[in-house]
């Protein structure tokens, strides 16, 4: 069992409020979804996240909180769950990109901090890294093109 203090729970709860405000503003500015329409979905996301965070502390095994959060999200939305249509409808109004933009805005600071280490690695690592990413990507596309029909056949 992981130990989490009440201070950590409080900070998580406050941090989530900040994230919800960010997402609501982003959803309004970038995608013209009115805040009143966004808020129910955001509250659902808030509850799922906090619940997942608390579960990761209570449950045995040192699983990362992300696993629990994503799992609860899945369980809330699978068609078997009677709440699913309600959850899917409201969370659907929260645009994915409105949630992602703040993450990358914050990550800019981390990148700036590691800038020195990054410059030392120089252009060679960049070239090799990009080749790795491209080959992984194309390999994955080709394999999926080949195997998707097979697995669709197996399931259907």
């Amino acid at each position: 069992m992981k130990k989490i203090t009440s201070l950590q729970i409080r900070n998580m709860a406050i941090g989530l409020v900040v994230a919800v405000v960010f997402g609501t503003i982003g959803n309004y500015v970038g995608y013209s979804v009115m805040p009143l329409d966004t808020i129910p979905g955001m509250l659902i996301l808030y509850a799922i996240t906090l619940l997942g965070y608390l579960l990761s502390a209570v449950m045995p095994g040192n699983m990362p909180d992300m696993v629990y959060v994503s799992l609860i999200g899945v369980l809330m939305a699978i068609p078997v769950n009677p709440l699913s249509p309600y959850v899917v409808e409201h969370v659907g109004k929260v645009q994915l990109l409105a949630v992602v933009t703040p993450i990358l805005a914050y990550s800019g600071l981390v990148i700036g901090r590691d800038w020195g280490a990054f410059r030392k690695l120089s252009w060679r690592a960049v070239i090799v890294g990009i080749v790795v990413i491209c080959s992984t990507f194309f390999w994955s596309v080709f394999i999926s093109e080949l195997l998707l029909p097979i697995s669709q056949g197996l399931l259907g």
Binding site: L16, V69, V74, I78, N81
Partner: peptide, 13 residues
């Protein structure tokens, strides 16, 4: 974490 919750819901759906 919020993103994970949102992605989880997309996944479940």
């Amino acid at each position: 974490l919020i993103l994970m919750a949102k992605l989880g819901i997309n996944t479940g759906n």
